[in-house]
Amino acid sequence: MSEIVELVVPSFLDTLYMVVFSTFFSIILGAPLGVFLVLTDEEGLLKMPKINSVIGTIINITRSIPFIILIIVLFPLSRVIVGTTIGKEAAVVPLSIAAAPFVARVVESALKEVNKGVVEAAVSLGASIPQIVLKVLIKEALPGLILGITLTIVNIIGYSAMAGVIGGGGIGDLAVRYGYQRFRTDILIVTVIILVLIVEITQRTGNYLAKKIDRR
């Protein structure tokens, strides 16, 4: 029992590390892209259909690369940014980059749900584009954004389990190394239960927050 705890606790902390930082950086990278997609859309405030379609295509390409390939492709980038290609720090780089286009799409679709009339009212009151983004689009779309970010976190938890491949550590890695390669079924079960619990808690928290701030 104590062996399981000794194995699981550090792995759990590694997973937490990867998920928290990857979520943070994927939002930093992806959210502005999502906003940009909405603004440059044909019905957007900045109407730039060509640039919009170029960015859209880049996002689609990135999203269609299997995560395991992305990790390998991004080895050089991981080395530049964190100085190594193994470990949980190195895993954050491909995780963030893999999740960023997902965040961009999630943000895009949440912001597109905002009532056009409300945006128009803000324009008619003399609001600038940054003011509209911050005080109208993001504020009005907040429940949808929270649900989208929740979805992102759940995805990253799944991806982080794959990060074990590059020695990223974490719960998924533990499941593979002990549960599968050493036939430790008990550890396999514990890791799966923990992953299920993390996902469940994340999703429930997201749903609760989204519902709580939704005044529509």
């Binding site: 009532n115 009339g117 409300v118 128009e120 009212a121 008619s124 009151l125 109208v136 504020k139 009005e140 907040l142 429940p143 701030i213 939704d214 005044r215 529509r216």
Partner: peptide
């Protein structure tokens, strides 16, 4: 200023 048929208020404010 302008007012609208469907009011166009910020629903989360």
């Amino acid at each position: 200023s302008m007012i609208f048929q469907h009011f166009n208020l910020l629903s989360n404010s």
